[in-house]
Each structure stands twice: as structure tokens, then as C-alpha cells.
Write a protein that binds this DNA or RNA. Structure first.
Length: 901
RNA sequence: GGGCUGGUAGUUCAGCGGUAGAAUACCCGCCUUGCACGCGGGGGGUCUGGGGUUCAAAUCCCCACCAGUCCA
């Protein structure tokens, strides 16, 4: 839907869409910008342009329009107390890793906290109404701007003011009134300074009007009134209207402090710490002038380097000062920003990697490290992390708990970065020695496969210029589409299946057949058959006389797939589920929760379930972890899991309202991904693990008996797969392992106690023997060569030594043959070696003999007789064939070939 | 989630169907009384693993594993 069309429509009826009570009461005037025609509301009679076209924009830098000064932390306290005093509930921030939405990696706006996807629809669930939340949001779109523009962040705090207009919540009038009062009462901003601009918002099938509020050209917030759905020509009012007011906390702090950039007042003591450590000159007048200027030049040009140049010109800063003052400052801001983003993301369980959202995190960490390197600074990242967390923890106490984990992960990533720098240098050195001209394709391959940018190659003078077609060609490469296919069954009009596996769960029951599709898909009125889902494999068993092969859930209807026919529709059938299978799957499912918790407890807070699979005889669990697991780590996890079994912990299963569960247990409950239902089933292994899970579980952990991890592998960067068995399957597994060892013991002729020693012995013997053979060949090759010469047969100008070898191998004859022809230049050495039911030919010709016959030709002739082929150089040839019966003929053929017959 | 690249001596890599190589490190000797220098000699490899094609595979094809990288 075209936003400008909606705006045109809404602005044509301002009384209906934009005029709130506040405008009436305070006497706001509606004006149209003399430059861009946009409509805005103001109390200042002299104002003729919208905030985008203001001449003195960003004049708050060095001259804040507020009576009070609040830094980042204080600014939130002020905002929070204002809204709480006005009937709002203050809600803690949600994780920046957006676990409750499949379509987002990170939380990008405060409203996302309360959006839940149900099928194709987005619904809103508010833990309170109205509410306010300090939501940390991550955005990587404008990453180039961070540190440079003075106002862009990779993560920022969005003050979310949200309300549903009902008996508790409010609608437009009160919203705008509150925002206005917050600015004037709390921050002491002059009424005349505040401008509201008419705008619209549209997305996800709904839309509505919005009012952005500005002070001195800086957008502080945007109140969106989501009100309609459908098309502009034909729309209806939503049954769930929402106020989504989002304001940047960083900007609130900035406008009250009037610092040169928003960074100066939002990272607490960290920027000051860095500036002091490197000792640069920070003349605040010059800096203020510069950042006021760049706000202006950026609105004129999107190109960052041009905007920078123009800003320097406008502020009267020469290039030396840019290099000595502005550039290092930009670097410091970038480091502070990126590191804060990493603190939040890693605390919330995200890991830097080369896939998924982790890629963005690796990118920003490497940008940080590269910046430190570029300036040759000596910052301790751990110190900077401490400074961030110390400053943030009064608002976000949870960060304290992951302080060390954040340091661990960043430390590991830093090492990886160092290694990759070394790799890059190695590759570029190799390229330099090769001195080959690199094509654009070469450059693209180097960039995509090895991460070596053309800029780096230019810097190290491997190439002189970056080809103009490089970026063009690069972007062409990344156009791919994906198709998805699911089998659709027509289940219209079939009532929801009664799910008895969540209730009394009878393993034998009678049910009525409601529908049979395609002769094998059976729908019953009720069922105990557990369908495939959440990584749990389905139950098998019998419906009437038919075997059940698969069970799946489509909406609220359970479909059973039978083999060899199906019962009649309308028939009442006796059903029986395979109990052994069910119990095996159940134990493996509970084990998965136990293993997950064990991994988290032994490895670190970054461990989350990535995906899982459970069947009767084994289970696997993919967890998010930075490195391959060591044997010790696996043992630790196993020990922890089995200790939990011995504790015989009860497993409590209860239904909760989704919002209540999130508030009570946090987002750790979403290990298995998003739960698309209003009521969630919480599986609580008391004191160990709490998850929202629809699977079947045992009553106490003691029932699991034993958990044995059978395998671990890294399936992709940041994800480790654990395979394990529990219960009966675990016993069977250890038994079968033991049997294998017995067999090895038997064939080694050893005992179980000494099996390892015997094995090592055998391996060492083999290695020693091989070395010995090499030495023997070396020492005896000369005398063997001499004996070959003496046995050789005269054939005209040359001598021929030929042999059929059935014991020694080609390696031996290559060594001896080479010796022999170097001792006697007229010798031809030809060995036919029988090996694995085939024949290999090795032939040498001395430098004199070559005049009569070339080794390559000889081999070609002989191998033809053996039904094979071969070739080689003048002095040395190899070949072979498979026709072992012709081996004598081959000897004759060799003679004839030499004699030229 | 979609791609790409690589895996050969302790290390860094070359070789890209025909006898597994270089540099460096290591060991021994000489020169030089020390150091990172020079000379000579030596040890060190199931070419990641498994299949296939071929007379012949480090080399070509397929699969797995390990590592690195780019993009959405």
C-alpha cells in the first residue's frame, strides 16, 4: 500500500485523523510546510517550515532547550516515573533476540514485544494496559552511519508507550496529551519548541495515522495509531486498535544535555574513559560546530563521505583536525556503540557466527576490532564491557548475571578475528609472490570465500585499483528464491479432534471415524495418538486392523495415516497405540529437556535449544554453542544429566496464559521455538528447566534411568549437535558397545583389561614394519640393481631385464629399476607386478637404451597385451592391465617391442 | 536459511591424472666462540576419511568430517 496516498487522504480530513484535544485546548495551529507541503501543528506563529527544512536544526547542540540535564540512565527514570504516575505499568525490557517471532532475529521495535504471530495474523498481547517499556532494539541497516552522524546507533532504547483503547487504556487524545506534558513538565521544554508532524504508518495489512514530534529538527518520538485494515479504497476498523508510541531514549538524553553527539551522553563514562586513555584533543566548540554541520549536510547528501567533507568545510575544520580530532572520535563512538549492542545480544543468548543473525554480531565485533587496530589503540575489551554493564545495570539488572559470559564469548571471537587476520595476510603474501593479474572474478571469489576485501588488497598494494564492476557484479550474485511445499489436505468442515493424550491418555480406546481421505488418511472424533510435532516423532499402533504409520496435526485436526487400507467412515473402531514406542519417545523427550539444561549449566548461559528430534531409540538435540565440544565437556554434561536423574525430580505440567508464562518464567520457555497458541503448556522440571512444550513427558526424572551421549558434532558455526540415548535404549547401546569391544579383544587375542595396550602395540608394529621395508629397499637396491644387470639378456644394442613379480610391490621395482639404469645406460628394466588380481608394469630405460626404445612406448605396447593401457616419459613408464592370464605373452611382447617387431 | 573456498611434512604452502615437493622449523656436522648468519647432511607424509571412474588418483566425480568466508 502506498503510504503517500494514505497520507494525502488522512491530511485531507485533519479534523477526523489528526486533530486531538490537546491541539484545540492549547491553540495549536495547523500549517503546511512552505518547502515540502507537509502538514504540521505548532504553537509558534512565525514557523513556516516543517522540522526537516529547519534552518537552525540541531541548534540544541551546545544550547539545550530544556531546563534540566538528564543523561541516558536518568532520562529513563524521568520518563518511567512520568508514565507510572499517569497510570502506566512499567514493564521490563524483552530480550533483543526475538524468540517469539520466527520472522525476526532481533527485536527491532518496542511494539514487537507484544506481537504474536498466529497463522498469518499478528495479534497483540499486552501484559498490562497501558504500559511503558524501555526496549533495547537492534538495527543493522544504517551501520555505516554509526559513530559518524552523531545520532545513529546499532542498538538503542526505544521508549514504548502502548495502549489499547478500552476501559483501562486510552486513545489519541490522551496519548498526545501525555507526550506533550512529558516534554514540557518533565523536561522543561518550551511549548513553542514542540512540533507535531502529520504522518501515516502501514504494515502487515493494517494502517493508521501517526504524529511525529520534533524539537529543533530532532525527531524525539512517533505516536502511531493503528486503526484500520484492508485497502485504502475499502477498509474497515480493526477490532483491536493499538497505540504504538516509540521514542528514542538516546535522543531524549541528547536534547537535554546538548552534547555534540548523542553518544556523549548515552554511554556513561565509557567514551570519556577512552578519550582520556588515548589522549586526544577534544575542543568542544569545534566538535559541536562539526556535528551541527553534519546534521545539515547529511540531509543534503546520502553519501557519507561527501557529507563528512561538506561538514568539515561548513564547520571550518581542516583535514589535519579531521584526522586528529573527528576521526578518532568517530572510532570511539563506534566502539562504544558496537560493544553495547554485543553486551545486550550476547546476554540474551545470541552468538556471533557466520549464519543467521549471528553474522551481524560478528560483523560489528570485527568492525570494532578493526577500528582499534586501525588507530593502534590499546583498549582492554573486558574493561570496556565492565564499564558498559556497570552503567547499564541500574536500568537492566539482568546484565550483571551474564557479565562473564559476555567476556568469554567476545574473547573467543577476538581470537578468531586475529586468526583470520593472519590468514588474510598469508593469502595476500602468496598472491604477491605469484604476481598474477587478478580478474574481477578472482576478486569476488577472494571476497566471498576468504573475506578478503578489495580495499585490503589495495592497501597491501596487491592491486592498484578496485575495478568499477566489482560491486555491481557482487550484488548480481545474491538473488535467489526459495520454494516451499507442504501437502495440503482438504479438511474443511471437519470438527476439531478431541485430544485425549493431554488428558487421561488411554492407550486403548474406541473412536468414531469421521473422514477418510485418499484411502489412507483417517480422521477420528478423538484420539490418543500423539502427532508429529515439536521434534517428537508420532505414535504408531492400530486403528481397527490397520497399522498406523504416521500421525500429523493440521490445525486442530489430527490425521492418522494407515497402511493397507482404512476403516469405513462412520464406523466405530477400536484403537491401540504402540506402548513401547510411546514410552521410548517419551523418555527421550524428557531427556532432551534434561540434556539441554545440563549443557546450559555446564557450558554457559548462551546455550539454547536450536532444534531437537526424539524417537523411540534415540534423540538428538542441537544447541547454540561457539565451539566444538571437548570430551571433557561431553562427560560433564552427561554427569550433570545423570545426577539430575538420580535426584528423581518431579515434572510438573500446567497450562498458563502465554503472557503470564512469559512474565513468570521469562523467554527461556521458548526453547523449542514459537508457540502459536494463547494458552501454553509449561513443562517444569522443578528447579532444573522450564519450557513451553506440547510433548509427552515422564512423571519424574528417575524414570529415565540413564542418559548416554553417543555423539557430538558441530553442524554449523554456532550450533553443536548432541546425540544421546536414554532408558532402555541407553542400556542396549552400552551392551552393543561392549559386544564390539569383546570382538576386538578376540581378534587381537588380548584381554579386556589390556585391549588398549594391545591395540596400540599392533598399530605401532605396522608402522615400524613399513619404515623397515623402506630402509631395506634403500640399502639393497644397489645390489639388486647389479644382479638385475648381470641377469639381463642382450637384445641387439640394448640389454633387457624383465621379471614377473608376485611378492614385492611396484615401489620396490621403481627404486631398483632407477638404480639399475643409472649404473648401466644400455639397460631396459621391465617389471610386471601382480597386484590385487591385476598387473602393473614399471619400465625404465637407460639413457643409451632410449635411442632404441622409449620406456613410455614400451609400456604402451606391453599393457595393450594385458588389456589395459599406460604411458610415460622416455626413461620411465608405468601402465598395467587386468588380463592376468596373458602375463607370459606380455613378456614376449616386451622383447618384440624392443626388437621393433 | 542460501552460497562459495580450502584440507598435502611440526608450520606456511606449491603440485592438480603418471617415481609426493619447496621454504621454514627440527636433528647432526662444519664455519663462526655466543645472537637471528653461511655451508653440508639427515629425520619427518595411509596427500582429512569413505566410496566411484582409471592400467594408474593427492590430482577427476560423489558422500561425510573439519576449518574459513560472503549474503539475506
Amino acid at each position: 500500500m502506498d503510504k503517500s496516498q494514505i497520507l494525502a487522504k488522512f491530511s485531507s480530513e485533519p479534523d477526523r485523523y489528526y486533530k486531538v484535544a490537546l491541539f484545540e485546548n492549547e491553540g495549536f495551529k495547523r500549517k503546511s510546510c512552505s518547502k515540502c507541503r507537509r502538514y504540521f501543528w505548532t504553537l509558534d506563529d512565525s514557523r513556516a517550515v516543517c522540522p526537516d527544512h529547519l534552518e537552525n536544526s540541531y541548534s540544541f547542540i551546545g544550547d539545550p532547550p530544556t531546563k534540566k540535564r538528564f543523561d541516558y540512565t536518568q532520562a529513563w527514570k524521568e520518563v518511567e516515573s512520568f508514565f507510572v504516575n499517569n497510570g502506566h505499568k512499567s514493564v521490563s525490557r524483552y530480550p533483543v533476540v526475538c524468540r517469539w517471532r520466527d520472522d525476526l532475529y532481533f527485536t527491532i521495535a518496542s511494539i514487537v514485544d507484544f506481537q504474536r504471530v498466529m497463522g498469518s495474523k499478528v495479534v497483540f498481547e499486552f501484559p498490562a494496559n497501558p504500559l511503558v517499556v524501555p526496549q533495547t532494539c537492534l538495527r543493522f541497516k544504517d551501520i555505516e552511519n554509526v559513530g559518524v552522524t552523531g545520532r545513529h546507533f546499532s542498538s538503542f532504547c526505544m521508549i514504548g508507550q502502548h495502549s489499547i483503547p478500552n476501559s483501562q487504556g486510552y486513545w489519541k487524545d490522551r496519548c498526545v496529551e501525555l507526550d506533550f506534558r512529558m516534554l514540557t513538565e518533565k523536561f522543561g521544554i518550551n511549548k513553542e519548541e514542540i512540533v507535531f508532524v502529520e504522518d501515516v504508518w502501514a504494515g502487515g495489512g493494517s494502517f493508521g495515522s501517526s504524529l511525529e514530534y520534533f524539537v529543533r529538527g530532532l525527531e524525539l518520538g512517533n505516536a502511531v495509531f493503528t486503526e484500520f485494515q484492508g485497502e485504502l479504497e475499502n477498509y474497515s476498523v480493526l477490532d483491536q486498535k493499538i497505540i504504538d508510541m516509540g521514542a528514542g531514549l538516546e535522543r531524549f538524553a541528547w536534547i537535554t544535555m546538548g552534547t555534540p553527539t548523542a553518544y556523549d551522553c548515552c554511554f556513561g563514562p565509557i567514551t570519556k574513559h577512552m578519550i582520556e586513555k588515548i589522549g586526544i584533543d577534544t575542543d568542544s566548540d569545534t566538535i559541536s560546530r562539526y556535528f551541527r554541520a553534519i546534521a545539515k549536510t547529511l540531509s543534503e547528501s546520502n553519501d557519507l563521505s561527501i557529507a563528512r567533507k561538506n561538514a568539515a568545510l561548513l564547520a571550518g575544520i581542516d583535514s589535519t583536525k579531521m584526522d586528529k580530532m573527528i576521526s578518532p572520535l568517530e572510532g570511539i563512538y563506534l566502539i562504544a556503540d558496537h560493544l553495547r549492542t554485543l553486551v545486550f545480544a550476547i546476554s540474551d543468548g545470541a552468538l556471533p557466527s557466520n549464519v543467521g543473525g549471528g553474522y551481524n554480531l560478528r560483523m560489528i565485533l570485527r568492525r570494532t576490532l578493526a577500528t582499534i587496530d586501525r588507530f593502534g589503540w590499546n583498549f582492554d575489551l573486558d574493561d570496556l564491557i565492565d564499564l558498559h554493564i556497570d552503567y547499564l545495570k541500574s536500568t537492566y539488572h539482568e546484565l550483571e548475571g551474564t557479565r562473564n559470559d559476555v567476556k568469554t564469548i567476545i574473547g573467543i571471537e577476538k581470537e578468531r578475528y586475529k586468526e583470520s587476520r593472519i590468514r588474510m595476510t598469508n593469502i595476500s603474501n602468496t598472491l604477491r609472490t605469484q604476481n598474477k593479474k587478478l580478474s574481477v572474478d578472482d576478486l569476488i571469489r577472494l571476497y566471498e570465500s576468504d573475506g578478503i576485501t578489495p580495499d585490503f588488497l589495495k592497501e597491501t598494494q596487491i592491486i592498484s585499483e578496485i575495478p568499477s564492476t566489482f560491486y555491481e557484479k557482487l550484488s548480481d550474485l545474491h538473488q535467489s528464491e526459495k520454494a516451499e511445499k507442504t501437502i495440503q489436505l482438504n479438511l474443511d468442515g471437519i470438527p476439531d479432534t478431541v485430544l485425549s493424550y493431554y488428558k487421561e491418555d488411554p492407550h486403548e480406546f474406541e473412536a468414531k471415524v469421521l473422514k477418510v481421505l485418499n484411502g489412507k488418511y483417517v480422521v477420528l472424533d478423538k484420539t490418543s495418538f500423539y502427532p508429529r510435532g515439536g521434534g517428537q516423532e508420532p505414535d504408531h499402533g492400530k486403528i481397527g486392523n490397520y497399522d498406523v504409520m504416521d500421525v500429523s496435526k493440521h490445525g486442530n485436526v489430527v490425521v492418522h495415516e494407515t497402511k493397507g487400507g482404512a476403516p469405513q467412515e462412520g464406523e466405530v473402531v477400536r484403537c491401540k497405540i504402540d506402548e513401547a514406542r510411546r514410552y521410548g519417545i517419551t523418555r527421550h523427550h524428557t531427556s532432551t529437556h534434561v540434556v539441554n539444561a545440563s549443557a546450559r549449566n555446564t557450558l554457559g548461559s548462551w546455550i539454547w535449544q536450536h532444534s531437537a528430534f526424539k524417537e523411540q531409540n534415540y534423540a538428538r538435540l542441537d544447541i547454540t554453542h561457539h565451539s566444538n565440544l571437548t570430551e571433557e565437556e561431553i562427560t560433564k554434561i552427561e554427569d550433570f544429566a545423570n545426577l539430575s536423574i538420580r535426584k528423581d525430580i518431579p515434572i510438573l505440567i500446567n497450562e498458563f496464559d502465554r503472557g503470564d508464562a512469559e512474565q513468570k518464567y521469562g523467554f527461556r520457555i521458548y526453547q523449542g521455538g514459537v508457540v502459536p497458541v494463547k494458552m501454553v503448556r509449561i513443562v517444569n522440571i522443578d528447579g532444573l528447566d522450564v519450557e513451553a512444550c506440547g510433548g509427552t513427558h515422564v512423571r519424574k526424572t528417575g524414570e529415565l534411568g540413564l542418559i548416554k551421549i553417543t555423539k557430538s558434532e558441530r553442524i554449523q558455526d554456532g550450533v553443536v549437535r548432541l546425540e544421546f540415548v536414554s532408558g532402555e535404549a541407553a542400556i542396549k547401546y552400552t551392551q552393543s558397545q561392549d559386544k564390539k569391544i569383546s570382538q576386538i579383544v578376540k581378534s587381537l587375542g588380548s584381554s579386556k583389561e589390556k585391549v588398549l595396550e594391545s591395540f596400540e602395540h599392533v598399530v605401532r608394529d605396522g608402522e615400524d614394519a613399513k619404515k623397515r621395508i623402506k630402509q631395506i629397499i634403500k640399502r639393497t637396491s644397489e645390489s639388486s640393481a647389479k644382479s638385475a644387470i648381470s641377469q639381463a639378456k642382450n637384445l641387439g644394442n640394448v640389454k633387457l631385464f624383465s621379471i614377473i613379480e608376485e611378492e614385492l610391490d611396484d615401489e620396490y621395482h621403481i627404486a631398483v629399476g632407477e638404480q639399475a639404469v643409472s649404473l648401466d645406460k644400455s639397460l631396459i628394466y621391465c617389471a610386471l607386478i601382480v597386484k590385487n588380481g591385476a598387473i602393473r608394469i614399471v619400465a625404465f630405460c637407460g639413457t643409451d637404451a632410449v635411442k632404441t626404445k622409449k620406456a613410455g612406448d614400451l609400456v604402451r605396447d606391453v599393457s595393450k597385451v594385458l588389456g589395459g593401457s599406460g604411458g610415460g616419459k622416455d626413461t620411465f613408464g608405468q601402465g598395467g592391465g587386468k588380463d592376468i592370464l596373458k602375463i607370459k605373452d606380455a613378456l614376449v611382447a616386451a622383447e618384440q617391442s624392443i626388437l621393433g617387431k
